[in-house]
Computed example of a mutant assay.
Amino acid sequence: MPDHVLITGGAGFIGTRLARRFAAAGHSVTVLDALIPQVHGDDPATTSPLLRSLDGVATVIHGTVTSKDDLRSALSGASIVIHLAAETGTGQSMYEIDRYTETNVGGTAKLLDVLANEANDVTRLLIASSRSIYGEGAYRAEDGTIVFPPHRSDAAMAAGDFDVHLDGFGKLEMVPTDEQAALHPSSVYGITKQMQEALIMTVAPTIGIEPVSLRYQNVYGPGQSLKNPYTGILSIFSTLVRQGKDINIFEDGQESRDFVYIDDVVEATFLGATRPGAAGGVFNIGSGVATTVNDVVAALFAAFGTEVPTRISGNYRLGDIRHNVADTRRARDTLGFEPAVDFREGVARFVEWVLTEPVEADGYQRSLDEMAERKLLK
């Protein structure tokens, strides 16, 4: 039977595509979104293609998860809630601490408070969690032991040592991180995502709602903001290429992430929200492949058919991790999720879309200056 689906933060990059996926499957969709200028511009009705893409797809409520009144309005009739609403950006979270905590933790607490204390029809609540809650993730020591190293030190990185270390275990090799790994986030953003997940996975079962947590890896693809400097390196580097500006590659360029294409994330989320077997589960959603920053630059240059000068600078940001790649076996076995788009194909699709968009004003340098002023960028 069709469900009524509420997507908080549903006017964003992931939410708009997810809304269309649910609508195409015959479900009715409500979106609650604060439509912040950093994502949607100063006049969203005219400056936000994401918002316009919801015309005829979803009922849009301009509101915030930090308001119980807005939540009550949005929850009316909903049977499935997809909780995407969050302030994002690891670097920015380290100095906009109150805003990140109020929205991510406080908004989640308000959502649960309304669900726990007021009549509603919600049967499943899915939280968009994050790979950031793992911190450095899993590594294999020389003796075969799987360990979870602490955050890298400022002193070591200043000396050009960007690898992770754990006293007494010798050289460490990064391995895929599964859902049983230790949780030790290295940023305020990661802490707030861990809190969101913990609140929902703890409270929801006590009030008769099935919780599901999806730990997204690095999501990318067409529709990703090209003007928000906190959305990720694919958008940032693409803008620099189109402007003909140099690319500053932090650390040694060998740091890696698990990039997962937007369509794959949407399908995984749809499965997590609708598959009976997902109830109560925590799932990594990624490609299962580690891609270095140097690989990202090479893929972008190939897709654009042009290059700009690059510089491996040795700069680094406090709070960044060295490597991350997801173990995705649980999502495959329980949800039936298999990523369909590999990185090269995904980048080609992304660049094809980028070339149809205007060249945006670059706020990236401003974001770096803000971090440097606070001694978070070295």
Rank of each mutant, 00 (worst) to 15 (best):
T8M: 09
G9C: 13
G10V: 00
I14L: 15
T16G: 04
G26E: 07
V39A: 01
D43K: 09
T46Q: 12
T46I: 10
T47H: 00
S53D: 14
A74T: 02
V81F: 02
H83T: 05
A86E: 00
E87P: 00
T88K: 05
Q92K: 11
E102T: 09
N104W: 11
A109V: 05
K110D: 14
L111S: 12
L115Y: 06
A119R: 12
S129A: 11
S130A: 06
P150H: 10
A155G: 05
A158Y: 05
D163I: 04
V164F: 06
L166I: 10
D167Y: 04
G168T: 07
G170F: 14
M174E: 09
V175R: 03
P176E: 07
G190F: 13
V203D: 08
P205Y: 07
G208A: 02
Y220N: 05
G223Q: 13
Q224C: 02
N228M: 05
P229N: 13
S238G: 15
R242D: 04
K245C: 07
I247K: 04
I249F: 10
D263Q: 10
V266N: 02
T269Q: 04
P276S: 12
G281I: 05
G281Y: 13
G288H: 06
T291H: 15
N294E: 12
V296D: 08
A302E: 15
F304M: 09
F304K: 04
E307F: 06
I312W: 01
N315F: 14
T328F: 04
A331I: 10
A340C: 12
A340Y: 02
V341K: 03
D342R: 09
E345T: 15
E345I: 07
F350Y: 13
L355F: 01
A361K: 14
D362S: 13
D362Y: 07
L368H: 06
E370F: 08
M371Q: 15
L376D: 09
K378C: 09
